[in-house]
Design a binder for these strands. Structure first.
Length: 941
RNA sequence: GCCUGUGUGGCGGAAUUGGUAGACGCGCUGGACUCAAAAUCCAGUGAUAGCAAUAUCGUGUGGGUUCGACUCCCACCACAGGCACCA
């Protein structure tokens, strides 16, 4: 028997596959069902593959190998997302064109991927920075532009005057540029954008049908941020002006007591009163110098300025003040809101700070509504003692349990007066400090002592105790309770009355009532719940022409231009006559010119320096300047999955017949970090092409799986911080072989989980491969006749491995294969048939070793196209089966009985079993539960 | 704060239409082989008590449903990821 020499074997088979073009896919062969399995293509950095790449690529490799053996025509391609920052940096620092740098890295990457034995069809390799590829990136962009989805839009950006450039949010710190510390302001500028909002609804709808991780779908939904509401128009008092607000709660319009415009709102300057001009200008200045990040900072106390103008509430014609505040974002909705402090936490905060009236228009309802109720108004007073951290309660014992102070209002008495009176009468405390009034509650209850059903409008009030001073109580005859100070825990456990419980809950929240309830103070909405009231109000708004239903998205324009060199040139020319000209198809690709200086100076795009290149003269002699921004990194990756199918087509981005056959991608694997970037952009581009009839699927990626991170042996992310714990796949490959690395990474745990590296685990993987090698290359172990003892384990293994591979549970598939090998060792022999079946399965994970064993077993051809093993269910069941006997759910013994034994038979054995019967002594058997072939449970008393 | 996910031996991790918790691997212990070691093969290995048979406990915490709960329900805690004044 020969030694397992991984270096020899691996290079031998890699050479074989390459020479025989084993994995070349004939995309025009439609005779077999297709299977398209795709990895997120890497950025070809100089450092090469890391351990995380290997786990993802091995997973798709296993699937593609299995599918091929199952008779699918498999497409498993690889390429490089080769435009982008590191190559740009290289150009800037060395002054060399990034092309060579990229080519070198691509070569290094490809060689590494080949050394891992992945079954990529390298004839389909693509590079996004290759003019042959980006010709079509430009072409698709052109279609987007011609169809109006790509356009120049005026939008607010972070502008730094000194640097002369636009900065992204994370490049701005404390209102100053990260580099240089120059002031940054928000400014409107023309930007080349793609209107992704136009696809929002289709993107949301598409998510429902995708086999993707729920978390990723949720991230995309949040990102799109759909909210259904209404636009409502407010007129400005004393001006011939109006503004529109977006609200999801138009049912609360009667409670709108002020409006807020974002400081950037275009109406602000027009309607600000003379005496407020200075204050408003100052406030606007402060806001402009803040970045988005700062503006949305946590625990940021509300600020704002009254601008001296009033709006007219369109439903009741009330004059309400207009403020500006940075809690209203210019970029969301209409940049203006109606504020309903009673039912919105932020508005409540603002209103209490600026002493703006709060009108409650929704009341929660507690208790059960009855016929013939007596209406009344009442209060609930909650008193908190700061010093003891306790609340004052009245313990009514059998008469009603633990309550706060409650009482009915007298005529013309305010809630506060009533509360103070009741506190004094019932408890004798006189020095309490009023903190706040909480939302009113509509409560139904039955008063036993009076035999009356009441419906009370109850106002909870919150007080703090100033001192312990008490006067004599003044109780009615039917009032009998103990006064007790208790802590929050007791309140939560013992205050069960719905009204009092709810009142207490309100003390814990902000003063705004967000929940559902019935409308009050709202004229035609009174008595309706939230949903009905929204519908009725929408009807009213539309009838009276003051608003209409509106759907709003957080999703914004996708800025599609960067002031960088190493990206696709935008095929647009700004002509002398101020028109924009899009290049003809024949003028594509618009090739990126070489430059002497690749740096962006003063925020100007490097291509500004390409003087010759950027000056454009059309056939008929018209002059213009080319767009000098380049496309963002995500452009090429938004459609590359098309190009793999037809990489050399010069007439089209992809032949429609091929696109129709091969898409969607059946399995897409890559890191979760692309959840909202690449994975949304790809869906948008595909959806656009679908609507245009150029793609034939609504969604490009049918099933998506994210591979988890491989952590260092210390459980921390590999990287610069702990270089001693970083693992380079190259070293493992060298020392243990690619097969060991592949097997180990698949055995570590579930593919989606992040898991720590273990060098012991690598040893174990190598050990298992050697164990397989030793057994199956030893001719004495392989029998030409059947080995019946292996029937059950073999068939079970084939079934489990097949299913586990299919669902990407590679760790459990491997463990099952280990069980099979253990069994082979135990028995000492294995039939040729089973040995071959086993080697076929494991060849997906350790292809080099498996090919070699396959050859030793007597084959001349590659194992890659052998048919996948099948299994026989009937051979998977034993004649006998173990049944667990439990007494009151506790396991007492297991017995072996014939398969499908009757209950009566098992019951008799169970009851007379020695180990079991002693647990039955002196007990009465209540019942016996029997699950065939599994368990029998005897219930005793 | 909100959304999503996770929580099981010394470690990586199995097991969910509710039915023998801890598969498989690592580590550890013992045995065989060997002059010896490595490698290999075999056996054992959740905790506590006990010589043992065995008993009790045990899937983040506390309750609940059930003959029976890692699995279902309620509340809470911890960690990870995402969003965050989105009207």
């Amino acid at each position: 028997m020969q030694e397992l020499n991984h270096k020899k074997i691996e290079s031998k088979w890699q050479k074989y596959w390459e020479e025989h073009e084993t994995f070349k896919t004939d995309v025009w062969d439609f005779s077999k069902p297709k299977y398209y399995v795709l990895d997120m293509f890497p950025y070809p950095s100089g450092v090469g593959l890391h351990a995380g790449h290997v786990s993802g690529y091995t997973a798709t490799d296993i699937i593609s190998r299995m599918k091929r053996m199952q008779g699918f025509n498999v497409l498993h391609p690889m390429g490089y997302d080769s435009f982008g920052l590191p190559a740009e940096q290289y150009a800037v620092t060395t002054g060399n064109h990034p092309d060579g740098f990229t080519k070198k890295n691509v070569e290094y990457f490809t060689q590494q991927l080949k050394s891992l034995g992945f079954d990529y069809d390298w004839s389909k390799k693509i590079l996004t920075s290759d003019p042959k590829f980006y010709k079509w990136t430009q072409w698709i962009f052109k279609q987007l532009y011609l169809d109006g989805y790509a356009k120049y839009v005026d939008m607010p950006v972070n502008w730094c005057e000194e640097l002369g450039t636009v900065l992204s949010n994370d490049e701005v710190i404390d209102g100053k540029s990260e580099r240089g510390g120059y002031p940054v302001v928000r400014k409107n500028m023309k930007q080349l954008c793609i209107d992704q909002v136009a696809f929002a609804e289709k993107l949301l709808e598409g998510l429902d049908h995708l086999d993707w991780p729920e978390s990723t779908k949720e991230i995309q939904r949040n990102w799109i941020g759909k909210s259904i509401g209404a636009h409502v128009t407010f007129k400005v008092a004393d001006f011939d002006e109006e503004f529109v607000v977006f609200t999801t709660r138009c049912d609360t319009l009667f409670g709108a007591t002020y409006c807020v415009l974002s400081p950037e709102h275009k109406l602000v300057d027009k309607i600000t009163s003379e005496d407020k001009k200075q204050e408003v200008a100052d406030y606007k200045k402060i806001c402009a110098s803040k970045s988005d990040l700062e503006r949305t900072e946590l625990n940021h106390e509300k600020t704002g300025v009254f601008i001296g103008a009033y709006a007219i509430n369109p439903v009741n014609n009330n004059k309400i003040p207009i403020y500006i505040s940075d809690y209203v974002l210019a970029s969301y909705g209409t940049g203006a809101i109606m504020a309903v402090p009673a039912h919105d936490t932020r508005d409540y905060e603002f209103a209490t700070k600026f002493n703006i009236p709060i009108i409650q228009v929704l009341e929660e309802e507690t208790g059960i509504k009855q016929e013939n109720e007596t209406k009344k108004e009442s209060i609930v007073a909650i008193i908190y003692n700061k010093n003891s951290n306790k609340y004052l309660t009245l313990n009514w014992k059998q008469m009603g349990g633990r309550l706060f102070i409650g009482g009915t209002k007298n005529n013309n008495e305010s809630s506060l007066e009533c509360a103070l009176r009741e506190i004094k009468e019932e408890t004798g405390y006189i020095n309490v400090k009023f903190i706040k009034e909480l939302p009113r509650i509509n409560h139904h209850y039955y008063a036993k002592n009076k035999n009356i059903y009441f419906n009370t409008d109850a106002t909870p009030l919150y007080f703090e105790l100033i001192d312990e001073k008490q006067v004599k109580q003044n109780l009615d005859a039917d009032e009998s309770f103990e006064i007790e100070w208790v802590d929050a825990q007791i309140i939560e456990q013992e205050v069960v009355d719905e009204l009092h419980k709810k009142s207490y809950e309100y003390t814990l929240n902000s003063g705004a009532m967000i929940g559902d309830g019935i409308h009050i103070n709202s004229e035609f909405l009174n008595g309706l719940n939230k949903k009905d009231a929204i519908n009725k109000m929408l009807e009213y708004l539309e009838q009276n022409n003051i608003g209409q239903k509106h759907v709003n998205y957080k999703f914004r324009e996708w800025i599609f231009a960067r002031q960088r060199y190493w990206g696709e040139p935008v095929p647009i020319v700004h002509m002398e006559d101020n028109t924009d000209y899009v290049l003809e198809d024949i003028e594509l690709p618009l090739v990126l010119p070489k430059l002497e200086d690749y740096q962006a100076h003063n925020g100007k795009a490097p291509l500004e320096n390409a003087t010759e290149w950027k000056n454009y003269v059309s056939k008929d002699g018209k002059k213009g300047i080319r767009e000098t921004s380049t496309m963002p990194g995500s452009a090429g990756s938004s459609w590359y999955y098309f190009r793999y199918i037809d990489p050399n087509n010069d007439n089209m981005f992809c032949d429609p017949k091929l696109a129709k056959h091969w898409l969607p991608v059946d399995l897409y694997l890559g890191g979760p970090e692309h959840a909202v970037g690449h994975l949304i952009y790809s869906r948008i581009w595909n959806r656009y092409l679908y609507d245009k009839g150029l793609s034939f699927v609504k969604e490009p990626f049918k099933k998506l799986v994210h591979q988890g991170m491989i952590l260092g042996e210390n459980g921390i992310k590999m990287g610069k911080r702990y270089p001693e714990y970083a693992v380079d796949p190259k070293d493992i490959c060298e020392k243990y072989g690619a097969d060991t690395l592949r097997l180990y990474e698949m055995f570590m745990g579930p593919i989606e989980a992040s898991k720590p590296w273990s060098s012991k685990g690598v040893d174990a993987a190598r050990k298992f491969i050697e164990r397989v090698w030793r057994f199956f290359t030893n001719k004495e172990n392989i029998s030409n006749s059947e080995v019946k003892q292996l029937d059950k384990i073999y068939n079970t293994t084939v079934k489990k491995v097949t299913n586990d591979f299919e669902s990407l549970n590679f760790n459990t598939a491997i463990s099952q294969m280990m069980i099979f090998v253990n069994e082979c060792y135990k028995i000492g022999t294995c039939s040729l048939e089973y040995a071959q079946g086993f080697i076929k399965m494991i060849s997906c994970i350790i292809p080099h070793t498996a090919e070699e064993i396959w050859q030793i077993l007597g084959h001349n051809e590659t194992i890659a196209y052998e048919s996948w093993p099948s299994y026989d269910e009937s051979k998977m069941v034993d004649e006998n089966v173990n049944i667990a006997i439990s007494v009151n759910g506790k396991l007492r013994n297991t017995i072996k009985v014939p398969l499908n034994s009757e209950k009566s038979y098992v019951e008799k054995l169970a009851l007379t079993d020695q180990k079991v019967s002693k647990h039955l002594e002196n007990k009465e058997i209540v019942k016996i539960i029997f699950v065939p072939n599994k368990i029998i449970n005897i219930v005793v008393r």
